[in-house]
Design a protein around this nucleic acid. Structure first.
Lengths: 210, 210
DNA sequence: TAGATTGTTAATCGATTAACAATC
DNA sequence: TAGATTGTTAATCGATTAACAATC
């Protein structure tokens, strides 16, 4: 159901190329080769060409890629040619940090609203946003039409929040709670598991000889 | 240089098995089969057995795995049989959220200290921790001996912080800044790129027909 | 033209899945 | 014993890498 068929790792790298191209554009470069991209990102030039080839022919042999046009094309492929709004559920530490992190910076994402079900949090201001009651999520989004949600709640309520978001019309969810969500059909979930990341690092710590 | 040779994806799943086993132990289960683990984690039973087989033979045919002993063995393999301490660099939103997130909860990780180079932040209390000057990182850690660091600074200072951590004896780094770090030999880096995650989600949003 | 760099094909690599003999 | 479930081997799948003809 993706617009173009490409391996998932390719999509992750597309985001990296995008960042690289924004930087190149900022530096005033007109043209960039796959070898240049390799140097900036560490992704091999062959891989870069292969990845781009899933979506079309963007370069000119002997010259490379025109920075502006490629940036525009990739932005469109990634649906980042429009402003993407995000709903955050969970007004705790993590939700607050994410709101701050995304709300400022040049991420290109805009916080539409922050929700929590804790009465003690509802009504409080987080950055610009007054925390809303999750009970109002669906009615809020019937107007706002936000398609991306972030779950920054405890694991125990994450599945419930997932369904709430789905019912409100959200189509893609970034989940920080350490549970495997079962999203309804038509909703994509990606997981970021901070504890898991640290545990994997722990594995790679050097050991005593023997 | 890893203790046992296993594919990296396997290590990520080991962390998931660990969480699953902790839960099973909490429920009082004595024994768990790879099929049980599949049901709880979504990872197929064959994959579970394959993953475990890289590290030894832990199960009994016909019976499954003894929960307690397997938990102990995996904890040891992951180096989570001891308390793992973490240094956080960056006392902004993200650093603060991570400190809160890891400091409480049953993650098993303990925050050793939080550092920042911003004079306005140094000395402030974040949860239990008074933010220290990054200039003191090495001297602090010559005593503390922390092996895991988290970079929660802007991209512009991340490489510098990476080197600071490495010089202080940190062996594994979780990097939240959107840059490809070049760590010195002997230091492992994992990246968590929140903007990239959202961008990938954006790609998977449904498109208009045609 | 000569030099550079693309897009793509074929070869390689590595991880997942299927299947089953061994064994509790 | 009969039934269940492991550990492992071989088959499959998918992604990365190497290499090069096409072309600016």
């Amino acid at each position: 159901m993706s617009p173009y068929e490409a391996p998932e790792p390719t999509i992750g790298r597309l985001a990296i190329y995008l960042r690289c191209l924004r930087q190149a554009a900022k530096e005033g470069l007109q043209t960039i080769s796959s070898a240049d991209i390799e140097q900036r990102t560490g992704i091999t030039s062959g891989q870069v060409r292969k990845d781009l080839s899933y979506f079309g022919e963007f370069g000119k042999p002997g010259l490379g890629y025109a920075v502006g046009p490629l940036l525009a094309r990739l932005s469109k492929i990634m649906r980042l040619d429009r402003e993407q709004k995000v709903i955050i559920v969970g007004g705790g530490n993590l939700g607050s940090a994410l709101a701050g992190y995304l709300g400022f910076g040049e991420s290109g994402f805009r916080i539409a609203a922050i929700f929590d079900k804790d009465e003690k949090k509802i009504g409080k201001k987080l950055w610009q946003h007054e925390i809303k009651d999750t009970a109002q999520l669906a009615s809020f989004n019937s107007g706002a039409g936000v398609e991306i949600g972030v779950i920054a709640t405890p694991a125990s309520t994450a599945q419930e929040v997932c369904e709430l978001l789905a019912n409100a019309g959200v189509k893609a969810i970034l989940n920080f709670a350490p549970v495997r969500l079962k999203p309804p059909a038509g909703v994509v979930v990606r997981n970021v598991d901070l504890t898991q990341e640290l545990e994997v690092l722990s594995y790679f710590l050097p050991r005593e000889a023997g």
